[in-house]
Nucleic acid binder design. Structure first.
Lengths: 235, 235
DNA sequence: GTCTATAAACGGATAGAC
DNA sequence: GTCTATCCGTTTATAGAC
């Protein structure tokens, strides 16, 4: 039998099949420039394939965008659910530790799979961008493919944070997604805060390590009081 | 003198001047579709002005984008700095309460100016989108116009959170901006978590009220330990 | 499956009449 | 300042040779 399966080769200029080359080029360019600003010509140039290949293999640009997401979202979410399954069966019905839940969600998002493949890390960043895209299109794909995962994590969080109402929990998850997306979608934004170079850079594990305590503390904050805030006073 | 200045009129179909009509149409459409996906033809149709008017009044599409931001960013940041100035002079050198600082920053972003103008609220959402745009272009504008404000708030936070290293603080501010941007850039994303309608909707004051405790608790979390996390174990 | 060539529509920008 | 008409490059998508 053959020595090494072709798809596991990571050598430079690995001669992949055309659809894969297109998917990966699109992933990189969508991340860098956004969806609307990335043309099929840019993609086919980056992938070093013919312009007509995209329509031949995927049908249209929109279909390509969808394909970029569906290819990775399935495995990623299976991994997240598997991680949560294992944790819950170990706990035998008891609420999980908050940090464990968040780490299972966030960690899976940042350091994927065997982690040898850095395409997965690129995709994690792309996910961050996708969540901040205009409604419709990409967002619907994400909603449909993620709803099961979100449902499961919401249930786990609900047990771990009994002091929060269902509504409050939904908001806090929203805020959590915000921090994760923003952080995932590229460390460029960090320059807005720190113009100097950061010492530990943007290595995924480091980011997760810094993000975790922030998110857990935020989630555990006392429930919101329903009195008018200071800002409500007229100016 | 005249009874009511024209610019304070809020009557329906107020016949504004062409540049303002364009700026406000652009604001709405950029928010809804993103920058690259919004064409000048869409803008001029929405504003009910002639296509050539954009180039006549602003010079180019890029210049229009810049104008959309600079028009509102100046007043908004003056307001933020003024708010912080007042708080700091009251405190007479003592560190400000964390919640006060965050509220000054975030509150100004959500409920703007006299608050009668809901254009300002639209802009707050647009800001959220802009922060998650690809690097270059819009981001440079934001960086330049916001660096003074960020510097001031960073200094205030540093005094209020002495247990954090400079580096840790920068990361936490990054996470805070993430939650704010994501939350600002439209409540549509909330549907990803809660498919049902939320009872208190997306009224700015409510959002701020819910966001504040989350962010403050996150900022106050203990500093990150520099040991390997649970996830570091091989699978 | 891959290529060239081209269709058909849309993008930003401008010239010139009014 | 506002309008029409138009230039010209780019876009997605397809037809048809190989």
């Amino acid at each position: 039998m053959a020595a090494i399966p072709i798809k596991n080769r990571l050598s430079p200029k690995a001669p992949q099949d055309t659809p894969s080359r297109i998917l990966e080029a699109a992933e990189r360019l969508f991340l860098q420039h956004g969806f609307a600003a990335t043309s099929m010509r840019m993609i086919t140039a980056e992938a070093e394939v013919n312009l007509a290949a995209v329509n031949y293999h995927f049908g249209s640009k929109d279909a390509l965008i969808e394909a970029v997401f569906t290819r990775r979202l399935g495995p990623l979410n299976r991994q997240r659910l598997g991680h949560l399954d294992r944790l819950e069966s170990l706990a035998e019905g008891a609420p999980l530790k908050l940090e464990t839940i968040v780490e299972a969600f966030i960690g899976s998002a940042f350091v994927n799979e065997g982690s040898a493949n850095d395409g997965a890390r690129l995709f994690a960043q792309l996910l961050g961008r996708a969540y901040s895209e205009p409604s419709g299109g990409v967002r619907d794909i994400l909603y449909n493919q993620n709803k099961e995962v979100i449902k499961r994590f919401k249930a786990a969080l609900k047990k771990a944070l009994p002091h929060l109402s269902a509504e409050e929990l939904v908001w806090r998850m929203h805020f959590v997604f915000g921090s994760i997306s923003y952080t995932q979608s590229g460390t460029d934004a960090l320059r807005l805060v720190a113009k100097y170079e950061l010492s530990d850079g943007s290595y995924p594990q480091t980011v997760v390590k810094r993000l975790l305590p922030f998110l857990c503390a935020g989630l555990q904050a006392p429930a919101t009081m329903h009195a008018p805030t200071v800002l409500a006073k007229v100016s």
